[in-house]
Structure formats: structure tokens, C-alpha cells
Amino acid sequence: MYKLSNSLLNIAVKPKGAELCQINAVKNKNQFMWHADPKVWASYAPNLFPIIGCLKDDKYLFEGKTYHIPKHGFVRHSEEIKLISQTENSLTFSLKFNDALLKIFPFKFEFILTYTLIGNTLEVNHTVKNLDNQSIYFSVGGHPAFKCPLHKNEKYTDYNLVFETEESAQTYLLNTDNGLVTGTTKPAFNTKNSINLKPNLFNDDALIFKDLKSRKVALVSKTKGEILNVSFKDFNYLGIWAKPNAPYVCLEPWLGIADHENTTQDLKKKEGIINLPENQTFTASYYIQIHERHLG
């Protein structure tokens, strides 16, 4: 386990997948992240690369060849991503292409993930370097799960997700049989800028937003105020998800999305895919900020 600490927060990251697994208050010991109960959902905050969500028939096409990648990509389960740098307030991990990965993702790349803790804010930075002599195609995103409710004597329904501006966006529905995006949308907001959390909110899988105006969303208790917020100015999509009736909520900044039901499966034409030319570097960060009133 790798750790960062300051006067306000303790952070821990698992070696496997370089997965963030703890955000704890130093003074009052509040635990802000879901505890990855294997009976419910055994993850904390998977790192998503080089795809988001599901592929149709678990495959994609590139230059006439067929490749298979698991849901949300291969970084989340990687034992080969390694710590390459540690400072007083940061941890940096790297995964480079290898022969095994080239069989499922035919690009030479380096994926770099840096966690930086400053005050009550954690930056999660993603860097992708193109080491190939061609463009490479990928998606990238986060999947952090936060404990909800945070305090005793609270219920899940005591919490709202509050966005920084008024929204008219609708959620794009998934086919629950195969995890693919359909052409159907439905309203998700209970007010002009908030969504009330309730146990059956995710009965039809994740809420998926493509056209939010906001680039910040807060987890807010009706009685205790704002718990934390996630800001995602570098990300065009947001997923919100939990297992039905489970005491957590995932706030997921994405650059990319699951396949559509009518996809051609051509990676170059996949919605949200990033085209990174040779010798270029791509970066995107999201931020988790814990409200100071809950730090003791």
C-alpha cells in the first residue's frame, strides 16, 4: 500500500491498478471512500484505460483486425503498473506497452497516473504518451466510489448530488443486458441542479451524461451540508453509479463512453475516442475536494 498524508487527510493507493482506496480525515477519522465490500462491489476507484464501459461483443476493430479488451480496460486489474516517483505530496505510477498488451491494444504507449495531495484536495492526473509511429486511440476516466451516507443516523435519501449550474441534460440509458448505450434518454434531475439519491436510482444501471454544463458536482447531506465535491473540467462525460441499495455513490469523470448498440466497432469511429498523434502527450485531471467541516 502506498500512502500520502498531510495535516488534514490520509490517502492510500493499492499497488494493483494503482487504485485509490482510502481518503481519511486525520483528526476525526472520517472515512470518505467506499470500503469495497466484495459481497456488494469489490472496488474502490478503478482507473479506466484504454476504454470506458463495455464493447459490443467485447471486441473492437482496428485496421481490419479484431481485438478484445475487458470492460473499462486493462489498467484496473494490472499488476504491472509500477510506482516510479514519490514526493512528500505525490505518487506517480506508470504502465508501458508490452508484448501481451500489444495483442489486445496494438499501440505503443505509456500511461502515467499521478496522485497529488494539497490541503483538502486530491488531484488525479492522467498522462498518456504516444510512443508509436502512428496515432493511438483511447479513452480514459475515473470511477471513485464514495461512502454514502457518511454519518450515523442518516439515510441514503438524505443525500443529493448538487451541480454547480442549472442543468437540462438527460441521462442516456444503457441496455441492461449488454451494457451498451441505447438511443433512449430520460430526465434525471429532481431540481434544476440536483439529483436526490435513492436506493432504486440505479436499477437501470448508471446515469450517463454527455452534455452537462457543470464541471463540478458535490455530494451534499440535507443535515450535514456538503461532504465533498468532484471537479472534472478536462472531462466531457460523467457517469454516476452504484449497485442498487448499496451505501455508496460513484462519481465518474470520463473521456469516452461505452459502445452504442448500433456501433460499427471501428475504434477510430468510436464516440468519445481520443486520437493522439505520434510523439504527442495527453493529460487530463479531476479533483476530489473534501469539505473542511467534515475533517474535525
Rank of each mutant, 00 (worst) to 15 (best):
1 M>G: 05
2 Y>C: 12
6 N>K: 06
7 S>W: 10
8 L>M: 13
18 A>I: 03
19 E>V: 07
23 I>Y: 03
25 A>L: 06
30 N>G: 03
36 A>D: 09
40 V>Q: 12
41 W>R: 07
41 W>K: 04
57 D>P: 05
62 F>I: 06
62 F>V: 08
63 E>G: 00
65 K>R: 13
65 K>G: 00
67 Y>L: 09
67 Y>A: 00
68 H>G: 09
70 P>Q: 07
71 K>C: 08
71 K>Q: 14
77 H>W: 13
79 E>I: 01
82 K>Q: 14
82 K>E: 14
86 Q>L: 02
88 E>S: 11
88 E>Q: 08
95 L>A: 03
95 L>F: 08
97 F>E: 14
98 N>A: 04
100 A>N: 15
105 F>V: 10
107 F>H: 14
112 I>Q: 13
121 T>E: 15
122 L>A: 05
130 N>G: 11
131 L>D: 14
131 L>G: 05
132 D>R: 08
133 N>V: 06
133 N>Q: 12
134 Q>H: 13
138 F>G: 01
140 V>D: 06
141 G>H: 01
143 H>N: 00
145 A>F: 06
146 F>Q: 03
150 L>E: 01
152 K>I: 02
154 E>F: 05
166 E>N: 11
167 E>V: 07
173 L>R: 13
175 N>H: 09
175 N>E: 10
175 N>C: 08
176 T>D: 10
179 G>M: 12
180 L>D: 02
180 L>S: 03
185 T>V: 09
187 P>C: 09
189 F>V: 10
200 N>W: 07
202 F>W: 06
202 F>P: 04
207 L>G: 02
209 F>S: 02
211 D>C: 03
214 S>Q: 05
215 R>V: 12
217 V>M: 07
217 V>D: 04
218 A>K: 07
225 G>S: 11
229 N>D: 12
231 S>F: 06
234 D>F: 03
237 Y>A: 00
238 L>T: 06
239 G>H: 02
239 G>M: 06
243 K>Q: 14
247 P>F: 05
249 V>D: 01
250 C>P: 03
250 C>L: 03
256 G>T: 01
256 G>D: 00
259 D>A: 00
262 N>Y: 12
263 T>P: 04
264 T>S: 15
265 Q>K: 13
265 Q>V: 05
267 L>M: 14
268 K>H: 13
270 K>N: 08
270 K>E: 09
271 E>G: 02
275 N>I: 15
277 P>W: 08
279 N>T: 15
281 T>N: 10
281 T>K: 14
282 F>M: 11
287 Y>K: 02
291 H>S: 12
292 E>V: 08
295 L>M: 10
